[in-house]
């Protein structure tokens, strides 16, 4: 999919980007997380990543324009080269297999300084490389780290009791990093309540049991309806998107494919711009579930789950609702873009 410029193309106008700071000890997995999420690097390939020598700023355009700062393990508040207040979110990565003392101390230095400068900042802790442990041992360590962070914070001052810390267990080898980063992202999207409303309405009108708005390339979901997110469903949606992304280039025709995108013959009624879609049916009977995909903007796709019977009987209605949903999302994106480029 086009149009996710990652540092290569410069944006047309000066956009105000939402900044995310990625911190952690050396080899804790910061660059891996960034590369797996935003650069399509296969998890196994992160083994060959070089240590990061200086701060690298990655730009990524999704529902909001992001700028992710990948830092060397040695970065301090002084060498950061920007006030912490510039960042909307700080993610600190702790290697679950490493000793915790040093990383926790360093993390708290950053968090306290940031919290004092801007109390609204999101402070996120990724307890990383979690796949290496068994389920029980993993959770035990996870709780241990959380407790330790909170204890140390209160030792420093009881003022920090209110500090909003969020903890996530992550690993690049499964979907947990996607899930965690999605949740980090949600807090940065001002228009989130509108998107969620629209998804709720969409689900009700189309008889869908679940709907996600996904960023196609990174496979992060930017919003979902009010029903709870079940990990299995989320993983399946991620894998489905990955499959669709991989299928496209496989059967790309050098002669015919470009023609598909330009409108059909001039004599036929002008077709609206082409929006890709797909559906995967799970189970041979109509009692089963169908997972649909509709591209909404060049970056975003709507994924929904519904009964196959509903999908087959009311496909027209579904497509109709998608058109309205698309218009709504495009409007919201436009408002966002205008606000950020100052052309309102």
């Amino acid at each position: 999919m086009a149009s996710s410029s990652n540092g290569t193309k410069s944006p047309p106008t000066q956009v105000q980007r939402t900044k995310v700071l990625l911190l952690g000890q050396r080899r804790s997995g910061k660059t891996s997380i960034q590369q797996v999420l935003f650069n399509d690097v296969p998890p196994k390939q992160t083994f060959y990543l070089e240590p990061t020598a200086r701060i690298v700023k990655h730009v990524y355009d999704t529902v909001i324009p992001l700028e992710i700062w990948d830092c060397p393990g040695t970065t301090t508040i002084d060498t950061l080269g920007a006030p912490l207040a510039e960042f909307s979110s700080i993610i600190f990565v702790i290697d679950i297999q490493d000793s915790y003392q040093q990383p926790v101390a360093r993390m708290l230095d950053f968090f306290i300084a940031a919290y004092q400068e801007s109390p609204d900042i999101s402070l996120e802790v990724f307890v990383h490389k979690a796949e290496a442990f068994t389920e029980d041992y993993k959770l035990e360590n996870f709780r241990h780290i959380q407790q330790r962070v909170i204890d140390e914070l209160l030792d420093i001052s009881s003022d920090y009791e209110q500090m909003p810390l969020n903890f996530y267990l992550t690993s690049v080898y499964d979907h947990s990093t996607h899930e965690a980063f999605s949740r980090v992202l949600h807090k940065l999207i001002d228009s989130l309540p509108y998107l969620e409303d629209m998804l709720n309405v969409f689900c009700a009108n189309s008889q869908a049991s679940k709907a996600f708005l996904f960023d196609v390339k990174s496979r992060l979901y930017v919003a979902t309806d009010a029903s709870p997110v079940d990990a299995g469903t989320h993983n399946l949606c991620c894998d489905y998107l990955k499959t669709l992304n991989a299928f496209g280039p496989l059967y790309k025709s050098s002669s015919a494919s470009p023609l598909r995108l330009t409108a059909s013959s001039p004599s036929s009624p002008p077709k609206p711009t082409f929006y890709p879609s797909a559906a995967v049916t799970l189970a041979p009977s109509t009692q089963g579930t169908t997972l649909t995909y509709h591209l909404i903007t060049p970056q975003l796709a709507l994924l929904t789950l519904m009964q196959t019977a509903v999908f087959e009987d009311r496909r027209g209605l579904l497509e109709y609702n998608v058109v309205f949903f698309r218009e709504g999302v495009q409007e919201i994106s436009q408002v966002e873009t205008d606000a950020r480029t100052g052309t309102s």
């Binding site: 399946l236 499959t243 494919s257 598909r260 049916t281 089963g288």
Partner: peptide
């Protein structure tokens, strides 16, 4: 791989249709 993902959530892959930019 997709069949495997489906089976992990106790679903069974059955059929797929796609209208992609390429085909």
């Amino acid at each position: 791989a997709l069949k495997h993902s489906c089976s992990r959530v106790r679903e069974e892959f059955y059929a797929l249709e796609m209208e992609l930019p390429e085909f």
